[in-house]
């Protein structure tokens, strides 16, 4: 199944104001920067960001925060971006902090048809407030619900025109799980290679999950 490669601007135009968007990346590493720049340029508003962290004001999803595109953040860490904290305190952005492993598992659950996950992480802390505790063999676990989004914006190393993706080193991070968990999945790759070039065993995100690729820079 061939996938269309669209421009970052065309990808940004697909995202309506108010949409929820997952972004791969960890401190900006493995983040689709060209899509982010296009969303900033389009003046997107009211986005809900689902991502590991909010990087820095000049890097990764931090640029969306800085440009006022975001009203809600669901992340594990915002400490490296003073703008996120400032806007949170000012009431401009609502922040839900989620333990990193729980964030990964909630997204995995959302993408794999599970009703949630049971995790020991967060038991006995603020994170447990309002959540169901399920005891399994005498051990308490938190029921953490699945998480999905309207869009997942991924950063890959190689893509082919079937949408198959590979990742490099620590740039994979949240990208592979997010690929399963959104209604529209858009991938920005370092390289787009002809179909057949990526060995099947090297594909880490099956192309069937990816709706659009971002065109290589002109």
């Amino acid at each position: 199944m061939m996938r269309l490669a669209i421009s970052p601007q065309a990808a940004a135009a697909l995202v309506p104001d108010g949409a929820s968007v997952m972004f791969g990346g960890f401190m900006g590493v493995g983040t689709p920067e060209r899509v982010i720049d296009a969303l900033v340029a389009r003046g997107a508003r009211g986005l809900t960001l689902i991502c590991n962290d909010t990087a820095t004001p000049t890097c990764g999803v931090g640029k969306l925060i800085e440009a006022g595109c975001v009203t809600r953040v669901r992340a594990s860490h915002i400490g490296t971006n003073p703008s996120t904290q400032k806007k949170m305190i000012a009431g401009e952005i609502e922040v839900e902090l989620i333990p990193q492993g729980t964030l990964a598992e909630r997204i995995r659950a959302g993408g794999s048809g599970l009703g949630g996950v049971l995790t020991p992480t967060g038991v006995g802390t603020i994170v447990a407030e309002g959540k169901q505790i399920v005891e399994v063999d005498g051990r308490p676990f938190l029921l953490e619900k699945p998480l999905r989004a309207d869009f997942a914006m991924l950063r890959a190393h190689e893509a082919d025109y079937h949408g198959n993706l590979t990742y490099r080193l620590t740039a994979a991070n949240f990208n592979p799980v997010m690929a399963f968990a959104a209604d529209n999945v858009i991938a920005e790759a370092d390289e787009i290679v002809p179909v057949g070039v990526i060995p099947p065993d090297s594909v880490r995100t099956p192309g069937v999950l990816v709706h659009h690729l971002i065109r290589r820079p002109q």
């Binding site: 964030l103 997204i107 620590t170 994979a172």
Partner: peptide, 28 residues
């Protein structure tokens, strides 16, 4: 430095012989 090879603080690192990388769900 390799821009795709960093630690949890975003600092550049090197990969030693036998290193392996994986996604966040596997990591946790």
């Amino acid at each position: 430095e390799d821009p795709h090879l960093t630690d949890a603080g975003g600092g550049f690192i090197s990969a030693l012989p036998g290193a392996m990388s994986f996604d966040s769900a596997t990591s946790f």
